[in-house]
C-alpha cells in the first residue's frame, strides 16, 4: 500500500461509504465555502492553497493548485500565498520563544 497516492484524490467519495449523510453534509458545506461571496473564488482558492501548505496535505495542495490555475491565478500569486502560510507557521513557532523565555525566567534568579 502506498501512502498519498495521487489517484486517491479521485476516491474521496469513498470516505462517505459508511455515513453518507455526514459526508454529504460535509461536501455541501465544503463546496458552498468556495463559491463567490464577499471573497471571490480566486481569493478563496489562494487561501485554500495557503492552508493546504500550512497543513502539508498533499491532496489539498494538488487540488488547490489546480483550483488556483482554473481561477486565473499565476505562479507569482500562488507563491506569495505559500510564503504567507510559511511565514505564519514560522512566526507561530518563533512567538513560542516567549513561552521559553517565560519558562526560563520563572526558574531563574
Amino acid at each position: 500500500m502506498n501512502y498519498y497516492d495521487e489517484n486517491d484524490l479521485g476516491h474521496f467519495a469513498d470516505v462517505g461509504k459508511h455515513r453518507p449523510d455526514l459526508f454529504e453534509k460535509f461536501m455541501a458545506w465544503y463546496q458552498a465555502c468556495q463559491e463567490d461571496g464577499a471573497l471571490s473564488r480566486r481569493e478563496k482558492a489562494l487561501i485554500g492553497l495557503a492552508v493546504a501548505h500550512a497543513l502539508q496535505c498533499p491532496y489539498c495542495i494538488d487540488a488547490f493548485s489546480q483550483s488556483c490555475l482554473e481561477a486565473g491565478s499565476h505562479m507569482e500569486q500562488m507563491t506569495e500565498a505559500i510564503h504567507m502560510a510559511a511565514a505564519i507557521r514560522g512566526g507561530a513557532a518563533l512567538i513560542h520563544g516567549v513561552q521559553a523565555h517565560n519558562s526560563v525566567n520563572k526558574v531563574s534568579m
Partner: peptide
C-alpha cells in the same frame, strides 16, 4: 487558452486581469 492541462478561468474575471 490554458498553458497546460487545466480548464480556463471564468472569462469575465480573466478578461479584467
Amino acid at each position: 487558452n490554458p498553458v497546460g492541462a487545466f480548464l480556463p478561468p471564468p472569462q469575465e474575471s480573466i478578461e479584467a486581469d
